[in-house]
Amino acid sequence: MDIEAWVWWLIGAVGLGIPLVLTTMPEFGMLSVGAAAGAVTAGVGGGMVAQVLVFVAVSVALLAVVRPIAARHRTERPQLATGIEALKGRQAVVLERVDGGGGGRIKLAGEIWSARALDNGQSFEPGEQVDVIEIDGATAVVM
């Protein structure tokens, strides 16, 4: 029983796909795609040299192009601000006079917050828009 070359390439592609799933190393997936390209080359009648060249070319191209992109995406994940960090930089509406001494109230993200002005000499009247600079305990510091 003589197995055709394209079948061997497919077996190699599957064999390289198994460690990809087990180790989550994308390099195995890229080599697996290269082996599948070798199988296609064998299926259309390409010789052994052409099959190996296609396998190497596709594998190296994927390693050279996809791997750096994947590495960059792995390290550059956007930070999702949650909790009080998500409130910094947002705008709020003054409900009760806010000054540097505290005691004022603002409406921030649909909730009522105590607030104080960042600059002690500054004050904000009801209805004014303010920017939240930071959250100090349960008090929003605004300007």
Rank of each mutant, 00 (worst) to 15 (best):
G103T: 09
G89M: 06
R67D: 11
D99N: 14
F28L: 10
R90T: 08
V94E: 00
H73K: 11
G38E: 01
I106S: 05
A61Y: 03
E85T: 10
G38Q: 02
L118Y: 10
I84L: 08
R77Y: 08
S114H: 01
M25S: 10
R116K: 15
A37D: 02
Q79R: 12
L20I: 05
E76K: 14
F28I: 11
V21G: 07
L118C: 07
L53H: 02
A70C: 09
E27K: 02
V7L: 11
F55E: 03
L22H: 03
V56T: 15
L16M: 12
S32L: 00
D119I: 09
V44M: 09
R116P: 01
G89I: 13
G12L: 15
R105G: 05
I84F: 10
G34L: 09
A50Y: 08
L87N: 06
V14T: 10
A92S: 00
A36D: 06
Q51F: 01
G101F: 07
V21S: 14
A71H: 13
G38W: 08
R90F: 00
I106E: 03
Q91W: 01
Q79F: 12
G103Y: 06
T82D: 04
Q79S: 13
E27A: 15
G43Y: 08
A36S: 07
V33E: 01
K107R: 14
A70V: 15
L10D: 03
V56E: 02
H73I: 10
T23P: 03
T41F: 03
G45I: 00
D99A: 06
I18H: 06
G100L: 03
D119L: 09
L20E: 15
R116S: 05
Q91H: 14
R90W: 05
A42C: 05
G15I: 10
G46P: 03
G29D: 08
A109I: 04
P26T: 11
D119V: 14
I84C: 00
G89W: 08
R72N: 13
G104N: 01
A92G: 01
